[in-house]
Nucleic acid binder design. Structure first.
Lengths: 220, 220
DNA sequence: CGGAATCCTCTTCGATACTG
DNA sequence: CAGTATCGAAGAGGATTCCG
């Protein structure tokens, strides 16, 4: 049923599992925590219910994710990465880093999600700049599109949903975030122009440094 | 013409380029140096000429590879990675590392190439063990399947084809290599049983340590 | 409503045959 | 040797329906 390259090669074996369309993007979503089927649909615009459920089944068979029913009163079914699945984080990060180089600025018809944007930052993130910093930062573009990231012990963790007690919370339109984080708009101007900030400017400055100035060429 | 995820996401952008079937395996082959069309066919059993030429065109369009005509008397057309293409090395390595965990032992119908085997070693390679070692090692399973790797300044480079002046040269059947490098067969026994060695046992021991003992579970 | 199977169309893949 | 052309098979995308 499932197609294999039939090669005794570690890369080919990895691609046998995560090489088909949408699969690694499903993993990307789950790297930010457990999700329900509908959440995944939301984070994977264009996928179609049949394909998502097929991918989820394949990933379960491969031991990359697990299906779990949350305890009452939630009671909903969620999918989450296994340890094996979490090990894909490094591979995803390297690919993200590579893709970042030719990301460019968003076009009108491209979808945007805060957790993807944070992943761009994670790819650009310079460990040495952060030192032994601990920090939580939330970002949102709408009621439904909220994520945050946490830095602790030099690790950068993306989490879907709002943060409990963030050091910094930012809200704005996708383009506002991009302008702010690429330095196209200085912090004060960005705040005047559309970004809502909860926290102080110093913390924002720290976050901007953590991301490193995103360099997105127009020509990509 | 080409399909895109349409997401403003670095990972999705990367997958727009290298996410389709065979693409990353083409890159894998080229990471070991320039290749002709026929060489690539040989290193990608099962691909079909139409798909290979389509992939090569896509990768050129994406700036990942370049087509070049070798100077006389060779005069043959080769494909090689651009700098941008070489940057995929890290991403490929991480995926290889991940795939290695579930590689297992080869089945009867799986293809084998020496450069894939070396890539397994590269994924398992422990930098610290090597120190400031410099070393070249060639491996072959047949007249046509020969590759070598070079370690220098802590970098591990795979190269298709024979080495000029290797510190060690090994020849044998695929299974012989696996038995030797997983410790299933001690060096002396392996040499008695099918591996031909050119170089001394000490160097072989060093190479085995560089690879780290490959751990391939039967059950994968 | 969340989760998934079904149906239909379109694209991509794989294998072979064929050409410069 | 280096590809293009062709065609049946498999996979993807979208909408709709079904089940709990």
């Amino acid at each position: 049923m499932k197609r294999s390259y039939g090669q005794y090669c570690a890369l080919a074996k990895a691609l046998d599992v995560v090489g088909s369309r949408w699969t690694l993007l499903v993993v990307r979503e789950l790297l930010a925590g457990p999700r329900r089927f509908g959440d995944l649909m939301n984070g994977l615009p264009g996928i179609g219910t049949n394909l998502l459920s097929e991918r989820l089944r394949e990933l379960q068979d491969a031991g990359v994710i697990e299906k779990r029913v949350l305890p009452p009163p939630a009671g909903s079914t969620v999918y989450e990465l296994t340890d094996r699945g979490r090990e894909l984080g490094n591979a995803a990060l390297q690919l993200t880093r590579w893709g970042y180089e030719s990301l460019g600025l968003p076009t009108k018809d491209e979808e945007f999600r805060v957790n993807w944007f944070i992943a761009i930052g994670q790819a650009a993130y310079q460990r040495q700049a952060a030192g032994d910093l601990s920090l939580t930062c939330e970002m949102r573009t709408s009621e439904t599109d909220v994520s945050h990231f946490r830095i602790e012990d030099g690790k950068f963790q993306i989490v879907q949903g709002p943060a409990r007690d963030p050091d910094l919370a930012l809200a704005g339109a996708p383009r506002d975030f991009i302008d702010l984080f690429t330095g196209r708009l200085p912090p004060k101007k960005a705040i005047a122009n559309g970004i809502a900030l909860n926290g102080d400017l110093d913390t924002l400055q720290t976050v901007l440094e953590i991301f490193g100035l995103l360099e997105l060429s127009e020509t990509a």
